[in-house]
């Protein structure tokens, strides 16, 4: 079975771009604090979602609705209403992180497919099987913490379909288990669907260079001429003992193309692209490149079925084109590659 390509859409034009460039599925969120890309100007109202779902379905592309915050008692009614709306609009699956919401969805919309969000932090088969038994989840997105070998072992131990990240910004922490942003700013992925939110960012020009702050905390300082990136707090430069460096992670993107054959051979079902905050042009281009990579990889695997993992390396022009789109214009295999850890 070929890998499925799951692409992000923060807006209707981005959804069209993903569909037109070969996504098997797109994932969207509704406006408001119910999903992990709760940025101004992003996400779908009900009418737009209906239009987008119709556009995708007419072209054989599925639409997943992400509702991957952990609602508090105050936001619970909005969250359950979002689930009802997704069901009403004919979404192909709900991407949820919160067990309480999974219970609600399983009880009220038993026919609606449930996917466990990466924010659900399930990194082992026992956790996945608990979610499957309790709520009937059919797919899970794995946090970016497992090596390729660990992914393969996990796939072999669970009946839940596995989706992994293939390209996009790199979370260095276990998704759903990171409160760094709320520690610094009061807003977190789990509670508000944001990380290092723009309203807390301040840029300063100083004699020492350009500086970025997050709620007053100095995240990085750039020498004249040095490229400055968005101050995601885990990608800043800090002092540890006597050294100033990217103590947690460099500004870089995840790119799993090098391990695509191994992921396919291990039984991974889908490759996910991060980036609902990205432009339609970006989404279209990344979708086109990933589509090509997945198809080339599948063709190579079909030619040498006995040797399921070797025999294919991503073409250099494809990697170069993806690097040009990547944060920091560079990429990493992240945790897929053990030495990164």
């Amino acid at each position: 079975m070929s890998l499925e390509l799951v692409c992000p859409a923060g807006t209707l034009p981005a959804l069209r771009a993903a569909v037109d460039h070969g996504a098997d599925a797109v994932y969207i969120g509704f406006r408001g604090a119910t999903n992990a890309r709760n940025f101004p100007g992003l996400n779908f109202g009900e009418a737009e979602a209906a239009t987008g779902i119709a556009y995708a379905h007419e072209r054989g592309t599925r639409v997943f609705v992400a509702l991957n915050i952990y609602p508090s008692p105050a936001t619970w009614p909005i969250a359950t209403e979002t689930i009802d709306r997704a069901a009403r609009l004919g979404a192909d699956a709900l991407i949820l992180a919160d067990p309480g919401l999974m219970r609600y969805a399983a009880d009220h919309h038993p026919a609606l497919r449930l996917h466990l969000s990466v924010q659900g932090s399930a990194t082992n088969w026992r956790a996945l099987e608990l979610y499957r038994r309790e709520f009937g989840i059919q797919r899970a997105v794995l946090p970016r913490v497992l090596s390729v070998t660990q992914v393969a072992r996990l796939v072999g131990r669970t009946a839940v379909e596995i989706e992994v990240f293939g390209f996009g910004s790199l979370c260095v922490m276990v998704e759903g288990r990171c409160a760094l942003s709320s520690y610094a700013t009061g807003h977190s992925p789990n509670s508000q669907g944001v990380c290092s939110p723009a309203h807390a960012v301040r840029w300063e020009e100083t004699p020492a260079g350009r500086q970025s702050r997050l709620n007053g905390i100095l995240i990085d300082r750039y020498a004249p001429g040095e490229a400055a990136g968005y101050p995601t707090l885990c990608k800043g430069r800090f002092r540890v003992n006597d050294a100033v460096f990217h103590a947690l992670e460099e500004p870089t993107s995840l790119n799993a193309l090098d391990v695509l054959p191994a992921l396919a051979a291990s039984g991974v079902r889908a490759i996910k692209v991060e980036g609902r905050q990205r432009s339609p042009a970006y989404v279209g281009e990344v979708t086109r490149l990933l589509r090509r990579a997945i198809d080339l990889c599948a063709a190579a695997r079909a030619e040498t079925p006995a040797d399921s993992t070797a025999g294919w390396t991503p073409p250099a022009d494809l990697l170069a084109a993806l690097d040009a789109l990547a944060e920091g214009r560079t990429h990493t295999l992240g945790a897929y590659h053990r030495p990164w850890q």
Binding site: Y70, P71, S72, A97, P99, G100, L101, N190
Partner: peptide, 11 residues
């Protein structure tokens, strides 16, 4: 991650 009554009830 326990943020609401439904998840608390589940546990």
């Amino acid at each position: 991650n326990v943020y609401n009554a439904a998840t608390l009830a589940f546990l």
